[in-house]
Design a protein around this nucleic acid. Structure first.
Lengths: 118, 118
DNA sequence: CCCATTCGCAACTGATGGTTGCGGGTGTCG
DNA sequence: CGACACCCGCAACCATCAGTTGCGAATGGG
């Protein structure tokens, strides 16, 4: 029962640089390719490409004002991404719990066995 | 205040194929490159490469038995990965909440203003 | 012993994150 | 108005990686 995941959305936030860009955009409200690149270890063009990716999956939207292009996070879409992270995490978590429960059961069984043998 | 994330660990679970592999390994307990590739849309070699990646970040461990190499999920490490997903999600979520709170405050301010004007 | 199975290694392709270089629109200031 | 600074987009290029095919080596069952 694998969780339904929008692979495009996931892989968009899968990139470390894109995650940091989203962080920056969230904390500063908005930003341009140039302004973001100043706070990142990559060039403006690299940032611009990432912005294209983020825009394609709807995580950010741009508004052109004069010679500047301001990008802003789409809160609803980011909320969707967060929900997916939570879903996958929860799925794995529940499986891990189940495994531990089974392991405990087996362990109890073994304990009982060694009781009998003694 | 960006969340501390082990980029290697994150990007390991960032790949859709690797996520499905982890799902399979979790639900079936263990598996080989060959057995996994039968349930995935990729070749054995591709799976083998992914297993190398997962092994490098400690998400799986292998035990060679005869000509078979059984892989198994490292629960503790996967738990760490799940925790990171939760952390990042929580960080973004709290930022989104704060933004919405501020937006509401501003809105209330506007309402008050229009009250005065009226 | 032979054959099937499983694995590992190597070479090739395609996509993508990153770079540099350049040219075109848009302000701003003298 | 003209020159300069700034921000952007486009193109070429490089490195890495996911994926493929092909092959040879080791192990195990008839």
């Amino acid at each position: 029962m694998s969780v339904l995941v929008d692979d495009d959305l996931w892989s968009a936030v899968g990139d470390p640089t894109r995650r940091r860009m989203l962080d920056l955009l969230l904390s500063e409200g908005s930003g341009t390719a140039t302004s973001l690149s100043e706070r990142l270890p990559v060039t403006r063009q690299a940032v611009a490409k990432h912005l294209v990716v983020l825009d394609r999956v709807g995580l950010v939207h741009a508004t052109t004002a004069g010679r500047e292009k301001q990008f802003r996070v789409d809160e609803a879409q980011l909320a969707r991404a967060v929900a997916q992270l939570a879903d996958v995490g929860a799925a794995w978590d529940s499986r891990l719990r189940r495994i531990r429960r089974i392991a405990e059961t087996i362990q109890r069984g073994r304990d009982a066995d060694s009781e009998k043998k003694r």
